[in-house]
Write a protein that binds this DNA or RNA. Structure first.
Length: 395
RNA sequence: GCGCAGGUGGCGGAGUGGUCAAUCGCAAUUGGCUGUAAACCAAUCGCCCUAUGGGCUACGGGGGUUCAAAUCCCUCCCUGCGCACCA
């Protein structure tokens, strides 16, 4: 057996799946196909933005794509953009992004890698910090490289274009962002670079730069961006429309159920391993059942099958049958005011909120079925429901 | 350095001496409808209290004028734009 060959899986079906599922752009498609079929071990680059440590399903899309390459035996090369994070990536932003401290970056990265481990095999991946080479690059070299990149092209990017038109500032260092990212590709000799579709431009600069430096230009494969639970904007923590990979099973299940119907199939395609045929089968069902299948599938992926089944049961009992969930947060009453206990348990923000909720009839004592109307009632042992999905058991 | 325009609640963005805890939109919360979807209707949306009322804190920071300031003055910090400097 020729171990150096046999390590790479060149199954045409798997290759087609990689090239199509969730893929937005493949440049150059034929080239990637050829590379994948060649049996050569490829270096697949993914740049990581170390600004936020919490991964969500949005991040999972590209990581899953990377995993697919790993499964065929290729090398995942993660580039931690520690150097670039200090600069601030202008992509998609309407304003200059603030720089991060190196300590924050390091802390974020540790967490990031640990969470990415839920999807890719981080032990087999090559991990680099781009400060390793970017920080050492002499200015003369930077200057030389900069001559390969055309500002007119960069200005075509809508984010820059908008800022230019509205008269807001664009700093020179922001122009360097694509260049730096491109240089990463040069440095690690990437065969294929992955990214979200919003990164297409940056990734293509990598191609250009490699070509100019007489390297084989990398190919670029971008995946679709995933909308968040609001169904409108790209999933992101700052918009609070995200489903975190580390979310508690019940939360995860609930959040997925709150995703608009129109996105169910997209979620299936981008976030799960379900076969296309299976997805088609599911799409024939009514939306609620589709979504339950989706939620169950995703929760299984991150928490295991049995936990997912429990989450499903919890969901159906609590919301469909309107029963009381089984695993409710518990707290000792100790004769305090109910409002105090609620604040203490962090199910509400303030006593003022408590008063509002009481007024609105949002609080129910599930043991007696009563809705307290007095703000100043004491916390006797009982189970309370606050609004639709907050529960607290007082002992 | 000079000039101009700004810094208001999670965001956008009104308000330019009292009627401002601050119009409005988005987001959020709650109730209704429901599939914890969407859409729609209604209400709420600084904090605290001895609670259809009262108090406190808040409009970049600090100080001042005034019976009274988010609103006027001084000062500092920050952001953007223009000019100058430099080349």
């Amino acid at each position: 057996m020729f171990w150096n060959k046999s390590q790479i899986d060149t199954d045409p079906d798997k290759i087609e799946d990689i090239l199509t599922r969730g893929v937005e752009d493949a440049i150059v498609l034929e080239s990637i196909r050829t590379k994948l079929s060649s049996g050569k071990k490829l270096r697949i680059k993914l740049g990581i933005d170390p600004t936020s440590p919490d991964l969500h399903l949005g991040h999972s899309v590209v990581l899953r794509k990377l995993r697919a390459f790993q499964d065929l035996g290729h090398t995942a090369v993660l580039i931690i953009g520690d150097f670039t994070a200090v600069v601030g990536d202008p992509t998609g932003k309407s304003a200059t992004r603030p720089a991060l401290s190196t300590e924050t970056v390091e802390k974020n990265m540790k967490e990031y890698i640990s969470q990415a481990g839920l999807i890719i095999d981080t032990k087999k991946a090559e991990i680099h910090h781009n400060s390793d080479w970017l920080a050492k690059l002499p200015f003369s070299e930077v200057y030389r490289l900069a001559a390969f990149i055309n500002v007119t092209q960069i200005l075509e990017r809508s984010d820059f274009k908008n800022r230019l038109q509205s008269g807001s500032s664009i700093k020179i260092h922001e122009f360097f962002y694509p260049l730096m990212q491109a240089y990463d590709s040069v440095e690690i000799k990437a065969d294929v670079e992955l990214g979200g579709n919003d990164q297409l431009f940056n990734n293509l600069v990598g191609r250009t730069l490699m070509e100019k430096l007489d390297l084989t230009p990398q190919d670029v494969l971008t995946v679709s961006l995933l909308e968040g639970t609001d169904g409108i904007a790209k999933m992101s923590k700052s918009l609070d429309n995200y489903i975190g990979l580390r979310d508690k099973p019940n939360d995860m299940f609930g959040k997925i159920m709150s995703v608009p119907d129109s996105l169910i199939i997209k979620y299936f395609n981008l976030c799960t391993n379900k076969e296309t045929s299976e997805i088609e089968e599911i799409s024939a069902k009514n939306p609620r059942d589709q979504k339950i299948a989706l939620a169950k599938e995703i929760v299984s992926m991150y928490h295991g099958k049995s936990v997912a089944e429990k989450a499903e049961k919890n969901f159906i009992d609590t919301f469909s049958k309107k029963e009381v969930p089984t695993d409710i947060q518990e707290i000792i009453g100790g004769g305090k005011m109910l409002s105090e206990i609620f604040v203490e348990a962090e199910v509400i923000q303030s006593k003022t909120e408590f008063a509002t909720l009481i007024k609105q009839g949002a609080i129910t004592n599930l043991d007696t079925g009563e809705k307290p109307s007095d703000i100043r009632i004491s916390a006797s042992p009982a189970t309370y429901r606050i609004g639709k999905h907050r529960f607290l058991k007082i002992k």
